[in-house]
């Protein structure tokens, strides 16, 4: 399990990185950010990139900033960085909670938010967050910058709008209004494993009923997405168990579940019902959430 040979590039500016990428893109040159997915693929010789463009020496990519009602997350921001308060509650609380479910601490110190989005694993927690909250994807190449909305970004299992020679340099998440409630729930075989199913819900209540709802499901379909039918089932109703059940049942009914050797469609569908309901209950239960692990919060 030794990676195949590659040429290593270590640009120190983004422009330099994009210039190199433009040259090597045709040969399947790849960006190396955290490497927590790419390097195992290379070790297993499932990926043979002949060029690696290591962006770790470009400090400007390691920043988050709040701007125009959005949290912008650069291409080198690690999972663990998002467990710290970012000064944008309640969104940063949501991110901290979700981050604590991603793999394990030594992976979170390296792996990046944008790397997960670019890899677009169906069970990626960050893809679920991006899909549910409606992220904007800033994609650059040597030729210029374009911005892609979430509706166009995800294009299938591990397939995105990022083209050859392009790089996801930043993702922007809309901030959550202060009165937003949110809940996340995932089920995995072991601690830190990819989830068999997960859900993220954000709610705003108006006059005792749900005024606005976002319900996203991940790990169950080709890529995470919002389930409009489930959201519609909730809006205008009191945020109680019956309403949550109705929304969850709706989500389970409309998804197109992935199947594999261990997991059939029925299991995934039923699990979606469970995780949606539990995410909704979690939203009501911990209105003010805190990170599950605080270690990263202090780093």
């Amino acid at each position: 399990m030794k990676p195949a040979p590659f040429k290593y590039h270590r640009p120190t500016t983004l422009d330099e990185a994009l210039a190199i990428l433009a040259e090597v893109a045709e040969e399947d040159g790849r960006i190396l950010a955290g490497g927590q997915t790419l390097v195992p693929m290379m070790a297993l010789r499932l990926a043979y990139p002949p060029h690696l463009v290591d962006i770790n020496a470009i400090p400007e990519l390691a920043r988050t900033r709040v701007e125009d009602g959005r949290l912008a997350i650069g291409a080198l921001v690690r999972h663990a960085d998002l467990q710290a308060p970012l000064g944008c509650p309640p969104l940063d609380g949501l991110l901290a909670e979700v981050a604590s479910h991603i793999a394990h601490y030594p992976i979170r110190t390296r792996g990046t938010f944008c790397g997960s989005l670019a890899n677009a694993d169906p069970a990626s927690e960050w893809c679920l967050v991006a899909a549910t909250l409606g992220a904007e994807f800033v994609i650059r190449s040597a030729d210029g910058t374009r911005s892609v909305g979430v509706e166009d970004y995800f294009q299938g299992v591990m397939a995105t709008a990022i083209g050859p020679g392009e790089m996801l340099v930043e993702a922007r998440l809309p901030l959550l209004p202060a009165d937003s409630l949110w809940g996340f729930y995932e089920f995995s075989r072991r601690a830190g494993d990819f989830a068999l199913g997960m859900a993220l819900a954000t709610l705003r209540l108006e006059g005792g009923v749900v005024g606005e709802a976002r319900i996203g499901v991940g790990g169950a379909e080709e890529h995470p997405r919002r389930i409009a039918e489930a959201e519609a089932a909730l809006v205008g109703r009191a945020p109680d168990e019956a309403a949550f059940r109705a929304a969850a049942a709706k989500a389970a009914a409309v998804i197109d579940p992935l199947e594999d050797h261990a997991t059939d469609g029925t299991y995934r569908r039923e699990l979606v019902e469970t995780v949606v309901r539990r995410a909704l209950s979690a939203a009501m239960a911990h209105r003010q959430a805190r990170p599950r692990t605080e270690i990263e919060a202090r780093s």
Binding site: Y8, R10, G35, Q36, V39, P40, A43, D54, N56, Y105, P106, I107, T109, R110, S299
Partner: peptide, 13 residues
Amino acid sequence: GEPVRSCLMFAIQ
């Protein structure tokens, strides 16, 4: 100071 998996990094980094 941070725990990392040394199999998922290259020495050159």
